[in-house]
Write a protein that binds this DNA or RNA. Structure first.
Length: 597
RNA sequence: GCGCCCGUAGCUCAGUUGGACAGAGCGUCGGACUUCGAAUCCGAAGGUCGCAGGUUCGAUCCCUGCCGGGCGCACCA
C-alpha cells in the first residue's frame, strides 16, 4: 500500500484555537477555568429523566429542548410528555404533572410549567443566569466547545478546483463553507484533515498543456491552431509568457534548442508543459486561498498520489475479487446497479484508459477512508448526479453508506447594484476569487457566503457587500465586538479599577434585556453543537446577527460606565461575556473580531 | 422521460432536524445623537408558507399528485 500523506490535524486545530483567541482582560481568569461543564439542556434532560424515574414512568428515549419564540412559554420547552403518552398509556398532561411534581431542585431552574397539550416550559432562575456570566467568562474561548464530534477522524475535501484556471467566485463560497466546517468540527472535538485534490491528469490536463503550447508558439510567431477544447483565458498567455521568460526563450530557434537540450519529444513536451502549468496554477490557487485565510493540510495529486502508485488497478482488482466487475464492448464495468445506482459504470474504457470514476473511487477508498471514518466532500451542483455511483462503489467496498457525506455547494450569481455581472467561462471571462477578496474584503466575503444555506443558490451583490452599512450583517456583528472593546478602552482611559471577576456582584443584572442577553449566551454551546452536527455554518452567522441584535439595543439604552460601581462592574462582566461569544462565533466563521472599525 | 435541489413579506433569505400567534435584513413611511462609537437605536405598514389532498393532538417541515424554476442523466472530468 502506498504511503498516504497524513494531515496535521492537531496543528490545524491549535491554529484555530489561536485564532479564536481571548481578550486580555479575561486571560487571567480563564487560566483557572473549570473543565467543560454540562450544557444547560443536558442538565434539564437529567432533571426530566430523574423525575420520570421517581414517578415510576419509563425513561424518555430522547428529550428535545427548544427555545420557545414566546417568552411566556419559558426559556426552554420540551414535548416529552406527549411523546411518552403512548408508551406510558397515560394522557400527556398527566405525565407532565408527574414530571413537574418530581422534578429535582436545580439551581438553574426557577420553575416548570405545564402548557398546551402537554408541553413542559422551563423558566430559568434569574439569579442563576446572572451568576452564569462568571462561568462564561471563565470558560473563555472554551465557551462553545463541545464533544458533538469527539474523537472522530474526519477527512474534509473542498474547493479542489481544476488546476486549469484561476479560482472563481463559487470557489470562494466553497472555501468559506469548508473552512468554517473545519473550525466547527474541531471545536466539537473532531480530528479534521483538510484536503485539496488536484486533478492533474486526464483530458483537462492535456487541454491545458496544448493551450499553453499554442500560446507559446503564437508568442514566438510560429504557426499554431488553438485547440478546440482549449482554455482561452488570458492567464494561459501569461503562463506561456512566464515559461518563455524563465527559460530565456525568445525565438523559435531558442525553443528548439531548449527542447533538444531537455530531450523533449512531442509527447514529453506536452507533459512537461502541463506539469509546469499545473504547478503554477496550483501555486496561485494556494496563494489566493491563503489570502482568504484558508489553508489545507494535504494537497493530493491525482497523478502522483493516486495514478502513479497504482491505486486504481489495486481497487479494480479488489472489485473483481468480489465479482462486481464485468467486461462489455471492450470496456470494464462496475456493477453499480447492485448498490442502488441507476446504471453500471465504466472503470476502464475500451481504449484502455481509466475513467475519472475509477481513479476517484481509488482515491476515496484508499486515500480518504484509509485516513478517516468520516469523509466529507464539498462539490458543485454539476456533480450531484455523480454521488450515487461513488456511494455505490463505497458500499461495494464495505464502507457504510453514511460514511461518505457529500455537500453540494450551490452556484453564486454575481450582481452589482442588482444588475447581473456578465461572465462567460467559454470566452474566459469571469470574476476571480482574488478580485472578489480585493473588492469586498475577506470578512465581508466570507460572512456573506455564510448567510445562506450552502445548498441554496446565492445572489452576491458586490456593491452591497462593499457597503459598510447595516445591509451588511458582518459589520453589524463586528460592530458589537468593537463597541465592547471600546468600553474597555474607556475603562482604561478613565483609570477605573476592575477587580477579579470573582469579586464582582453579578446579582444586579436583573433588567429584562440583561437576562435576555445572558440566556442567549447560555444557548450558544448547544447551538453551535447543533450547527456542527448538521454541518450548517450559516446557522452560526444567523445566531450571531441575532445576538448583536439583542446587544445593540441594550447598549443604546443602558450605560455601562457609571457612578453605581456595583452595576458598572456587573455590566462590564456581561459585556465582556458578549464580546467573548461574538469573538468565538466569528472565529468559527473565519471572520475577524476587530478591536475597532 | 427519469433523478436530485428549490418555491416563505415588494427584494434577498432564515425557520433549531414535527410544536404553541410566521422571523430577520434591505426597501417604504415616521422618529432618536451635549451621555461608554449613529457601521446604532425606537415605531409602523407588509403573508392563503406555490396549489390540492393525506398522516398527526399539532405540518413551512413528513407522504402523494399537480404547477413553476434550477441542475444532472458519457467508454467527459
Amino acid at each position: 500500500m502506498p504511503e498516504v500523506r497524513e494531515g496535521r490535524a492537531s496543528r490545524f486545530c491549535s491554529g484555530v484555537r489561536e485564532r479564536l483567541g481571548m481578550m486580555k482582560e479575561i486571560a487571567a481568569v480563564a487560566a483557572i477555568s473549570s473543565p467543560m461543564a454540562q450544557t444547560i439542556t443536558q442538565q434539564l434532560t437529567d432533571g426530566v429523566q430523574t423525575a420520570l424515574a421517581k414517578a415510576g414512568l419509563p425513561p424518555a428515549a430522547v428529550c428535545p429542548w427548544e427555545v420557545p419564540r414566546q417568552a411566556e412559554h419559558g426559556d426552554y420547552a420540551t414535548n416529552v410528555p406527549m411523546t411518552l403518552a403512548r408508551a406510558a398509556r397515560r394522557p400527556p398532561r398527566q405525565i407532565a404533572e408527574a414530571i413537574v411534581a418530581n422534578f429535582p431542585a436545580l439551581g438553574e431552574v426557577d420553575h416548570v410549567e405545564i402548557a398546551g397539550p402537554g408541553f413542559l416550559n422551563v423558566f430559568l432562575s434569574p439569579a442563576w443566569c446572572a451568576e452564569a456570566v462568571r462561568r462564561i467568562i471563565a470558560a473563555g474561548d472554551g465557551w462553545g466547545r463541545g464533544d458533538a464530534a469527539a474523537g472522530q477522524r474526519v477527512r474534509l475535501e473542498f474547493v479542489s478546483a481544476n488546476p486549469t484556471g484561476p479560482l472563481v467566485i463559487v470557489n470562494a463560497r466553497a472555501a468559506a463553507v469548508g473552512d468554517s466546517l473545519v473550525r466547527m468540527l474541531c471545536a466539537q472535538g473532531a480530528h479534521v484533515t483538510t484536503e485539496y485534490y488536484v486533478n492533474d491528469a486526464g483530458n483537462q490536463f492535456d487541454a491545458l498543456a496544448r493551450s499553453v503550447d499554442a500560446r507559446i508558439r503564437e508568442a514566438l510567431g510560429l504557426p499554431s491552431t488553438f485547440p478546440e477544447n482549449g482554455y482561452p483565458g488570458e492567464y494561459v498567455m501569461d503562463l506561456a509568457g512566464e515559461y518563455l521568460a524563465e527559460h530565456r526563450i525568445d525565438t523559435p530557434a531558442a525553443l528548439e534548442a531548449h527542447r533538444a537540450q531537455k530531450g523533449l519529444g512531442a509527447g514529453d513536451w506536452l507533459e512537461h508543459l502541463g506539469r509546469y502549468a499545473v504547478a503554477k496554477m496550483v501555486e496561485s490557487q494556494r496563494r489566493v486561498l491563503a489570502d482568504y485565510g484558508v489553508t489545507f493540510d494535504v494537497w493530493t495529486s491525482e497523478q502522483r498520489d493516486v495514478r502513479a502508485v497504482g491505486l486504481p488497478d489495486a481497487v479494480i482488482e479488489e472489485l473483481e475479487r468480489r465479482g462486481l466487475v464485468y467486461e462489455l464492448d471492450g470496456a470494464l464495468w462496475f456493477r453499480a446497479t447492485a448498490f442502488g445506482d441507476e446504471k453500471d459504470r465504466v472503470l476502464r474504457k475500451s481504449t484502455g484508459e481509466l475513467t475519472y470514476f475509477a481513479v476517484d473511487l481509488a482515491f476515496h477508498h484508499v486515500v480518504k477512508f484509509g485516513a478517516a471514518e468520516r469523509v466529507i466532500n464539498l462539490m458543485g451542483p454539476d456533480h450531484h448526479g455523480y454521488v450515487p455511483r461513488m456511494r455505490a462503489a463505497m458500499q461495494a467496498l464495505d464502507h457504510a453508506p453514511e460514511a461518505l457525506e457529500v455537500m453540494i455547494i450551490q452556484l453564486v450569481t454575481l450582481l452589482r447594484e442588482g444588475q447581473p455581472v456578465r461572465m462567460s467561462k467559454r470566452r474566459g471571462e469571469f470574476v476571480l476569487m482574488e478580485e472578489l477578496i480585493e473588492e469586498v474584503g475577506r470578512d465581508a466575503a466570507r460572512f456573506t457566503f455564510l448567510t445562506r444555506r450552502h445548498d441554496s443558490p446565492l445572489e452576491f451583490d458586490l456593491a452591497v457587500a462593499t457597503r459598510q452599512t447595516a445591509e451588511n450583517p458582518v459589520y453589524y456583528v463586528q460592530y458589537a465586538h468593537a463597541r465592547i472593546r471600546s468600553i474597555w478602552k474607556q475603562v482604561a482611559e478613565q483609570g477605573i479599577a476592575v477587580p477579579a471577576w470573582d469579586e464582582v456582584d453579578l446579582g444586579v443584572l436583573t433588567l429584562p434585556e440583561e437576562q435576555a442577553l445572558i440566556k442567549r449566551l447560555l444557548q450558544y454551546p448547544d447551538f453551535v453543537a447543533g450547527a456542527a452536527r448538521a454541518l450548517e455554518p450559516h446557522r452560526v452567522a444567523y445566531w450571531l446577527t441575532e445576538l448583536a441584535g439583542v446587544f445593540h439595543p441594550y447598549y443604546r439604552a443602558h450605560r455601562v460606565i457609571q457612578d453605581d460601581r456595583r452595576l458598572m462592574l456587573a455590566r462590564l462582566a456581561l459585556c465582556t461575556a458578549v464580546g467573548l461569544v461574538v469573538r468565538n462565533g466569528l472565529g468559527l466563521l473565519g471572520v475577524s473580531a476587530p478591536e475597532s472599525m
